[in-house]
Amino acid sequence: MSRRRRAKKEGPSHQQERWLITYADLLTLLLIFFVIMYGVSSVDSEKYAAVSSSLQTTFQAGNNILDGGPKITGENGQQLPGSEGDDEGQAAEDPNEPAQEEPTERELQFREQERQLASFLQTINSYIADNGLEDQIFVADKPQGISITLSDRFLFDVGRADLKSGASGILDRLSSLFGTVDATISIEGHTDNQPITGGRYADNWELSGDRALSVLRYFIDVRGLDASQFQYAGYADTRPVGDNSTAQGRQQNRRVEITVLRQLQSDAVGSTP
């Protein structure tokens, strides 16, 4: 009787300790879960350091990968896709790059004209220096073109528009150079503000225009240049470059300006002087 009673007392004690097994299993599962989560979320420090170093080098160089900058490499030095030199990444970028525009025919003509004008300027300056004509011929590179200013002292007599014989030297030299430039050439006559008394011309307008025409006629009739390359005008005393109250200033104003224009001859067709 006594043994049976002890057995009944020990039975309930074993049943109360079974929850420890379930609790231990739960803790084990939780530990495994957190280990897996930690493994998934961990960062490969070596790969991160390699990418960070490549980006830092790119920014310090002042360019970027799309512009041909340094490549991004992996942990073993391999090039990552999409960086410079990668065939797949390069092939994906090429279709999006703007096409290089070819210069138009007109742009090529202007470029050639600029080359010709530069050569013209150098040649005429050398001619002036070699012949000691610095006080009679003045050359300037202006936005509208190469300007050659000829003093009337060796071109014309006072109040006349007939060319002196000594003017042929510089005009012949200019004639030989005009054939090397594809440009329109403008010839302008200018006078001082002194009124004309008597003689052939009624006023400075007629005198300045006739002087420009005399130079033009020399280029066309004597030297045989193409008339379509030229235009001329007379401005009297309306565009002075010197002080008309002084003899020196008036001398500066009595001039003929020949300008090789930065203008294609095709653009000048039909235009008025």
Rank of each mutant, 00 (worst) to 15 (best):
D162N: 12
D162Q: 14
S165F: 09
G166W: 00
G166L: 01
G166T: 15
A167T: 06
A167E: 03
S168V: 13
S168M: 06
S168P: 00
S168C: 01
I170F: 02
L171S: 01
L171M: 05
R173C: 00
R173W: 04
L174R: 01
S175V: 03
S175A: 15
S176T: 10
L177P: 00
F178D: 04
G179D: 13
G179R: 14
T180Q: 04
T180Y: 02
V181P: 01
V181H: 03
V181K: 01
A183E: 08
A183M: 09
T184W: 07
T184D: 04
I185C: 04
I185V: 15
S186N: 11
S186Q: 14
S186C: 01
S186M: 14
S186K: 10
I187S: 02
I187P: 00
I187M: 01
E188A: 10
G189H: 04
G189W: 01
H190K: 06
H190D: 09
H190Q: 08
T191F: 03
T191M: 12
D192K: 03
N193Q: 10
N193E: 12
P195T: 10
T197S: 13
T197L: 11
G198V: 13
G198M: 12
G198E: 13
G198R: 13
G199M: 10
G199T: 11
G199I: 12
Y201S: 08
A202H: 11
A202G: 08
A202S: 14
A202Q: 15
D203E: 09
D203G: 12
D203T: 10
N204V: 04
N204I: 04
W205T: 11
W205H: 11
W205N: 12
W205A: 09
E206M: 09
L207V: 12
L207Q: 09
L207W: 06
S208R: 02
S208M: 04
S208D: 05
G209K: 07
G209D: 12
G209S: 14
G209T: 12
G209I: 03
D210I: 00
D210S: 15
R211C: 02
R211S: 05
L213G: 05
L213F: 08
S214W: 04
S214Q: 12
V215T: 12
L216P: 00
L216Y: 15
R217D: 15
R217L: 09
Y218H: 11
F219C: 03
D221Y: 06
R223I: 02
G224S: 02
L225Q: 11
L225D: 11
D226V: 09
D226Q: 11
A227Y: 10
A227C: 03
A227K: 12
S228C: 00
Q229I: 06
Q229K: 15
Q231A: 11
Y232P: 04
A233F: 07
A233P: 00
G234L: 08
